[in-house]
């Protein structure tokens, strides 16, 4: 954090926004990790608790928005303070959507518990782990205003896209082998897609690190995978 304001309450207001945001981030990270566990461990008791917790994330987003609105009205932030507060609203939005994706995975976990298990899906926990780590790292980079780390996170998005494609192919093979695996297979495809989308939100947060720190927008230098079922297409963001 830069030097303190002459008006100390201003510094405190900014610090409180940052704190709320990082708490919210911690909660979303936990939700993602638990959702992946609920899916991979077929934990039907964990899943409803995740769905329930999602409303708390929504409250956090509202809280960040309220705090920023109040700061705009009362203190008219400029320069780094303006950029920080604008980013806070955006990051809260990305986190809220990542939280929704975790809740959506939890809902699919409940259905998956009632269907036949798809064996040997090693790529799924790996993807879950990578996606979760990416979000955590992007929030760390934001907290530390670490432009270099943010850049490396954006480049990591490509690896994740590749993992996603591998997992989709694996699921497709299972579904072709045994039609009974089609229902769980489709749910798992959506789980994979959610994890890939969470990584996109992490990338968006990493892009904001440049803006907050230096005032310049990060060039869209994220490396894109080629996506599933979309070979040859230039930038297939949404294969399913």
């Amino acid at each position: 954090m830069p030097a303190e304001h002459t008006v100390k309450a201003f510094t405190e207001d900014l610090a409180k926004i940052e704190r709320s945001l990082l708490e919210m981030g911690g909660l979303v990270e936990a939700q993602i990790a638990r959702a992946v566990t609920a899916v991979t461990q077929r934990d039907s008791e964990l899943a409803p608790r995740i769905i329930e917790q999602d409303s708390e994330i929504d409250r956090y987003e509202q809280d960040v928005q309220d705090q920023v609105e109040r700061l705009f009205a009362l203190r008219q932030p400029v320069a780094q303070d303006l950029r920080m507060t604008i980013s806070a609203i955006q990051i809260a939005g990305y986190l809220e959507r990542a939280g929704d994706l975790a809740a959506s995975m939890a809902r699919r976990a409940i259905v998956l518990c009632e269907t036949r298990e798809v064996p040997g899906l090693y790529a799924l926990p790996k993807l879950g782990d990578a996606s979760h780590t990416m979000l955590k790292d992007s929030l760390d980079a934001y907290r530390d205003r670490n432009v270099e780390q943010a850049k490396s996170i954006r480049h990591r998005d490509r690896e994740l896209d590749d993992m996603y494609v591998v997992l989709c192919r694996e699921l497709l093979t299972h579904m072709l082998e045994d039609p009974h695996r089609i229902t769980p297979g489709v749910h798992l495809l959506f789980v994979a897609k959610n994890l890939e989308r969470i990584a996109d939100h992490a990338t968006n947060i990493a892009e904001l690190v440049d803006y907050v720190t230096t005032g310049t927008r990060a060039s869209d230098d994220r490396l894109r995978g080629r996506g599933f079922l979309m070979e040859g297409a230039p930038t297939p963001d949404d294969p399913l």
């Binding site: 030097a3 304001h5 002459t6 008006v7 320069a79």
Partner: peptide, 11 residues
């Protein structure tokens, strides 16, 4: 120093 002044962090 411009940043410090306009954001109210001066002195």
């Amino acid at each position: 120093s411009t940043q410090d002044y306009i954001t109210g962090r001066f002195g």
